[in-house]
């Protein structure tokens, strides 16, 4: 992606000290952390399933996806429910901070050093600094 000025809005979430942004169009809703039932023998980054108003919704752990140690759950913890291939999938984050838009989006870092770089779409620049933008498709895809 080219460095362009974008009017798209993003939801900024926090995981540990790291901030991530998800395009607001991808997000169905954000709910408080609730009881997650683990699903044995499923993909390692799937944390489990929750009951979202009678629907069973899988929840993935960003930490496990990025291969970093799991952060503890707190009062600020949220599940961001994202639409993916006609299904809803939840992502656990430590907090949801705000909705913002970026003046400029730069291509993601090439470097393999950054954890989870392959799931990034780019880096957005805002008043608060740089925030990595998540690519939902890649995040959920490829087993």
């Amino acid at each position: 992606m080219q460095a362009t000025v974008s009017t798209e809005q993003y939801v900024v979430s926090r995981l540990g000290s790291e901030k991530h942004a998800i395009n607001i169009r991808d997000i169905n809703e954000i709910i408080k952390m609730e009881h997650i039932t683990g699903v044995p023998n499923s993909k390692p980054f799937i944390r489990g399933v929750i009951n979202l108003r009678g629907r069973i919704v899988p929840v993935i752990s960003l930490c496990r996806r990025f291969g970093i140690p799991e952060t503890p759950m707190g009062a600020q913890s949220r599940i961001i429910v994202v639409g993916y291939k006609q299904e809803a999938i939840g992502i656990t984050v430590d907090a949801v901070e705000k909705v913002t838009s970026f003046q400029e989006i730069e291509p993601p870092l090439e470097s393999r050093e950054v954890q989870g770089a392959q799931y990034m779409d780019g880096i957005g620049q805002s008043a608060d600094g740089l925030i990595s933008i998540l690519n939902v498709d890649r995040l959920f895809g490829e087993g």
Binding site: H35, V39, P40, N41, G48, N51, I56, Y84, F140
Partner: peptide
């Protein structure tokens, strides 16, 4: 059903929601 995303998982045929709202 656990849905397509999770797919088939060994030993588990499906899910249900209990009285306390948990799965």
């Amino acid at each position: 059903s656990l849905g397509n995303y999770i797919g088939n998982v060994s030993y588990i045929a499906g899910s249900t929601i209990l009285g306390d709202g948990h799965v």
